[in-house]
Computed example of a mutant assay.
Amino acid sequence: MGRERDLDPNVSPRAFFGSELRRCRKRIGLSQPQLGERTTYSPDMIGKIERGERPPSPEFVAQCDELFGLDGHFHRLYQFMLQTPGPAWFTRWLEEIEPRATVLRTWDPLLVPGLFQTEEYARYVFRGAPGITPEEIEERLKIRMRRKALLEQEPLPMMWILIDEYVLQRPVADPEAMSRQMRYLAEVVQRPHVTVQLVAASCVTGMMSAFMIAQLPGGQPDVVNVESSAEGRITADHEVVGHIWSRYDTIRASAYPEYLSRQKIEEAIPIWERRAGST
């Protein structure tokens, strides 16, 4: 049997699944051989799953959910492991945090936020990843578009969205795609549960990274998701959450009023339409 060692759950979705399996096994006081006795897998194979070296089978996933009494937790992790090309930290956010949030606050200094991206715009964004294959682009698009179901769910979470004003001008896609993205963004900001404010490009505090803050029901602590181009971090640590809240408040202090932000978004549409007509 492979020696147990520390595993970074952020390495991959498979590593995240393995770390969750180990955590749940130890929580109820089972060794790997004891878990093997209750499932169809050998202790050696369980060790490889926990180390992220082998994927589990659907049968093993179902057995774990039943054994640990988790009502589909491992099944959902398994589905995201199969479908999500991104890192495990974001898998956890998509599955466990964002759908349960009562309020979402986000800041994005570079792009239209993922929840508000058109499929066309998102495809251009994903194409920029070094070495990405067409198949990987399509997989990421599926995840991005499926995530947008959050905008239609009941009850609807309140959304307070901060976006750097230069995002409206940044030529991420061709002019036709950009004009369609701006029209969609103008439509989304009319929804009663969505508040979008553009932030002056001179706001230095916002230059470090994008982030999201989720308020959860039942008095649970806030959770933050701090992103960068290479990695991310999800945590409910009081000190980290407090720091991100301070950044959010400081950035929002440099934001335009909601009505003016909507006006600027609407003004961006004909600008991109003229660019499209001149190409």
Rank of each mutant, 00 (worst) to 15 (best):
R275G: 00
E4G: 09
D65V: 02
G86Y: 12
Q63C: 08
A129V: 13
T118C: 09
D249A: 12
S278L: 12
M178G: 07
A149Q: 15
Y256N: 00
H243R: 15
G128T: 07
F74V: 11
A268F: 08
S19M: 09
A214M: 05
E176G: 08
R191A: 04
M1G: 14
M145W: 03
D65P: 02
Y124A: 15
N10G: 15
A201F: 04
W272A: 08
R183I: 05
A230P: 00
D65L: 00
I46C: 03
R247W: 11
Y184I: 02
L151F: 02
G2A: 12
S261D: 03
A255H: 10
A210K: 00
T279H: 14
D44E: 14
E239T: 11
A62P: 00
I213V: 14
R27N: 13
E176I: 08
A200D: 12
L110N: 10
R123L: 10
L198R: 03
V172Y: 00
D237L: 07
M45I: 10
R146N: 07
D164S: 15
Q197L: 09
I49M: 09
E154Q: 12
R76E: 15
S57V: 10
L141F: 01
W107G: 04
E20H: 08
E50V: 11
Q190G: 11
I143F: 02
I269C: 08
F211W: 06
P171E: 01
R146K: 13
E266F: 03
G52W: 08
R22K: 10
L35T: 05
E176R: 15
R22T: 06
W93F: 15
G219H: 01
S228C: 10
P171K: 02
Y248K: 07
A230M: 11
P130D: 06
Q153T: 13
L94F: 12
V204M: 06
F74E: 08
T40A: 01
E37C: 03
L115M: 11
Q63I: 05
D6I: 06
G218H: 10
S31E: 06
R25E: 05
P175Q: 13
I28P: 04
P43A: 02
L115Y: 09
E95W: 08
L198I: 04
I163R: 00
A268N: 04
I213S: 09
V61L: 07
K264W: 05
Q215K: 13
Q34W: 00
E50R: 02
E176W: 06
E165G: 03
Y256W: 10
E152G: 05
Q215E: 15
Q181A: 14
P217L: 09
E50L: 06
I251W: 06
A214I: 08
P99G: 12
Y256Q: 03
M182F: 03
P43L: 01
N10L: 10
Q63M: 12
Y121F: 14
F126K: 10
C24H: 13
R27V: 07
L151C: 07
R233L: 15
A149K: 11
E239I: 12
